[in-house]
Amino acid sequence: TDPTAAEDLKNVHKQSLEEDDEFEDFPVDTWPIDETLRSTTNGQTNLWQEDWDDVEVEDDFTKELRAELERNKEQQQQR
């Protein structure tokens, strides 16, 4: 018996690429001109924040941490 009997040749091209990782084709009618593209090769999008070390969102952990460090600091100064 033919294990692929259910899969006939007429449907081959309808097989969508199940591979989640592979790029899909898409129509590109108007391509951005070269110069515009070059300017993006330095990765200028709004995806990444500027180096922004100081922003911290408080949560239980940060509160506990600060409290512990303050305690520790005091103990040190008392020596």
Partner: peptide, 14 residues
């Protein structure tokens, strides 16, 4: 990152 930036640009004009 470059791939992403370029594809975003295309997305805006496609």
């Amino acid at each position: 990152n470059t791939a992403f930036s370029q594809l975003m640009l295309i997305a805006m004009t496609a």
